[in-house]
Design a protein around this nucleic acid. Structure first.
Lengths: 335, 335
DNA sequence: GCCTTATTTGACAGCGCTGGCAGAGCGCAA
DNA sequence: TTGCGCTCTGCCAGCGCTGTCAAATAAGGC
C-alpha cells in the first residue's frame, strides 16, 4: 500500500515549515502569495490530502455533521440525504448519515456516543427524531448546534426548517371543495409525526371556512404506509354514506386507497377523487397520477445544513414553500 | 460544553495505567478478569467513549468502510444502505455513505481523496460504480479491500456479491410463456448497468429454449425510470403486431408501461401482461400489483460488508437467491 | 528452592495535524 | 535614529489514543 504523503513531506519539498503548509490548507491569512502558490503546487503534485483524523484530533472542529433519521419512507430519506449532503459538501463538511431508533430507550445515549466518538460539529434531526425531548434537552445542555426539519414541538426553540402543513392541507381541501365535493374523507397518518396533526387541522379548518360540518366518521387513522392506507380506504368505502373524495396524509396511503378503488371497480376520479401529500415519486408512478402537495424535502434538508454551518443564522426558523400539484386523481364530483 | 472524559481519566479512577484501559477497550487478552471488570465499570459510569479520531490516528485501522453509489433509484439505495449499515454496525464498524458521480472524469481522484482523508479500511461498490475499471485498478494497486455488489465485469476478480440475473430473467420469461404468451416484448434498461444485458440475455435464452423466434422489434431500450419505460411501452403498443406481454428490466419502467396501458384503456392483465424486476415497494403500490423478481438487495449489501470485514473470506464470490413474485399484472393470454 | 516460561502491567514514543507563541523582517511615524 | 505595529514564518506542545518493548509478577518444572 503506497503510504500517503504527510504535511511534513509537503513542507520539505516546498521548502517551508510544516506549519506554513497547514496555514495554506486552512486558508489562513498571513501567508505571502508566492509561498501559497508554491505550497499549493506541491500539494497538487503529490496529491496530498490532509488526514481527517489528525485535523479532528488536533483542532477543535471535526468538519462533520450528523444526520439522524428514523423514517420508513425510502423516498423521504433519500431526498433528505441528498439535500443535506449537497449543501454540506459545498461548505466543506462531511455528512454522517445515521439511522436510529427514535423509540429506543437508549436513544439519547446512542446519539451521545455518536457525538463523542466522532466529535460531531452539529446535528440535523429529521422527523420523528425531532420530537425526542430528552435528546433535545441533552443537546441543549451540551451546547451542540442542531437544526430540526419539520419539528412538531418547541417550534420556536432553536434552528429549524419547515413547510406550512396546515396551509397546504387547507389548499388541498379547498381544491376538493372547489370541485364540488362535500363529503371529503381524511386518512390521517401516524400520531408520532407532528405533521399528521397539522394536516388534519388544515383539513378541518378549511371545511369550517366553507361551512361544511366536520364528520368524525370520515377521519380514519393509518400508519403512513400503503397497506394501512388501503385498510383505511376500505373502511371509508364501506360507509353507508360514502365520501366522494379521500384526502390521504401522504402519497403511500393515497396509493393504498387508489388500489382499493381499482379493486372495487370504482372509477377514479369519476366516482371518487383521491389526493395525497408529499409528491413522492410514487405520486407519478400510479394510475391515475395523484393530485398531491409537493413538499420541498430536498430544500428543507439543505436549509437545515446551512443553518448549522453558516454560523450566525439570520433567522433561526426557515419556512419553505409547498405547491399544490393537480393531477388526474381528483376531478369534479359526479351526481 | 461538558468536556468528554479521556482514557487517562478513566485509568486514574480505575487505578491502572491508561494503556490497560486501552487493552480493555480493544478486547485484548492478557488482562486479568478483575482488572477488566474494574475498568469496564468505570467506563460505564463515566459514559466514556473512545475518540474515533485518536484511534484512527494512532492505530492502523479506522473502523470505517465506505459505500459508493450512483443510482437514481431511492428504493435501491435505501436497501443497499440499510443492508450494509446493519452488518457494519454489528461488526463494530462505521459506514460512510458516499454518493458519487460515476461518470465524472474525477471519479478516481475523488475516491482516493475520500480514502486518504478518512483512512478507510474498505470500500463497498454498488452498480454502476462497480464498472469503473480505472477505479478498480487503482484500488488494486493500493491493496485496499473492496467488495462489489452485482458487478458486470471482472466477475471473477476480487470480492463480490450478486444474484443470477440471467436465470431470473429466464424464469420470468418462462412464466410468461407458460401463460401462453408468444409475442413477449422486453424493455431493457441502461447499458451502463451490467444487469440490463444479463436480463436481456436470459430473456433471449428462454425464448430460444422454447423455440420462439427472437424478434428485435420487440426489444426497446429505456433508462431505468418511469418516463422512459412509458415511452418504450408506447412504442411497443403502436406496433402493428402488438405484443401480448411486456417484460420490463425493472419495476419503474414496468410502472411506466402500466400507466400507458391504463391511459390507452388496455386491460392488464386481460389484454396485456406486464412484468417488472426488483420487487421494489413500487411493485406493490401500483394497480394491478406487478409480477416481478425479488432481488435481495438488502442481503447483497450485507454480504458485501461481511466479505470485507470478516477477514479471510471463504469464498470471494457470494451468490444469493432471487424469487419470482407472481402478482396480478400477468395472466393468461387472451385469444 | 531456583530457574524458566507465561501472564499481566506500565513507560514511552509517536500517529498527522492545529493552536499558541516567539521571532524575523519591513514600513512608517516621531 | 528609535520604536511601534504590521506581515510573514518557524518552533514546539499536545490532541487521545495504539504499538512496541521492557518490567513486574505469577505459575510451572526439576
Amino acid at each position: 500500500m503506497s503510504s500517503r504523503p504527510t504535511i511534513k513531506e509537503v513542507s520539505k519539498i516546498a521548502g517551508v515549515s510544516f506549519k506554513t503548509v497547514s496555514r495554506v490548507l486552512n486558508n489562513e491569512k498571513h501567508v505571502s502569495e508566492e509561498t501559497r502558490r508554491r505550497v499549493e503546487e506541491v500539494v497538487a503534485r503529490l496529491n496530498f490530502r490532509p488526514s481527517h483524523a489528525a485535523r479532528t484530533l488536533a483542532g477543535r472542529k471535526s468538519f462533520q455533521v450528523g444526520l439522524l433519521y428514523d423514517n420508513p419512507s425510502p423516498y423521504y430519506i433519500y431526498h433528505v440525504q441528498t439535500g443535506a449532503q449537497q449543501r454540506c459538501t459545498e461548505l466543506g463538511y462531511r455528512l454522517l448519515l445515521q439511522p436510529i431508533d427514535s423509540q429506543s430507550p437508549d436513544l439519547v445515549s446512542n446519539v451521545l456516543a455518536l457525538i463523542d466518538e466522532t466529535h460531531l460539529d452539529g446535528l440535523i434531526l429529521s422527523p420523528p427524531v425531532t420530537e425526542a425531548t430528552a435528546l433535545l434537552d441533552e443537546l441543549d445542555r451540551r451546547g451542540l448546534p442542531y437544526a430540526r426539519i419539520a419539528p412538531g414541538i418547541r417550534q420556536d426553540a432553536g434552528m429549524s426548517t419547515a413547510m406550512d402543513d396546515v396551509a397546504a392541507a387547507r389548499e388541498m381541501t379547498a381544491h376538493l371543495i372547489g370541485l364540488g365535493h362535500r363529503r371529503i374523507a381524511m386518512i390521517r397518518g401516524l400520531e408520532s409525526h407532528a405533521s399528521s396533526a397539522d394536516r388534519l387541522a388544515g383539513y378541518k379548518a378549511e371545511l369550517e371556512a366553507h361551512g361544511i360540518a366536520f364528520d368524525p366518521a370520515l377521519v380514519v387513522a393509518a400508519e403512513n404506509d400503503f397497506a394501512s392506507g388501503a385498510a383505511a380506504a376500505r373502511e371509508l368505502l364501506a360507509l353507508k354514506d360514502r365520501p366522494t373524495a379521500i384526502f390521504a396524509g401522504n402519497d403511500d396511503m393515497a396509493a393504498g386507497a387508489l388500489a382499493v378503488a381499482h379493486e372495487s371497480d370504482i372509477d377514479v376520479p369519476g366516482q371518487l377523487s383521491i389526493a395525497g401529500f408529499d409528491d413522492s415519486d410514487l405520486a407519478r408512478a400510479v394510475w391515475p397520477p395523484l393530485t398531491t402537495i409537493r413538499q420541498p424535502v430536498h430544500e428543507l434538508a439543505a436549509a437545515a445544513a446551512e443553518l448549522i454551518l453558516s454560523g450566525t443564522a439570520p433567522q433561526p426558523r426557515v419556512t419553505l414553500e409547498h405547491k399544490l400539484m393537480i393531477r388526474a386523481s381528483t376531478g369534479p364530483v359526479s351526481r
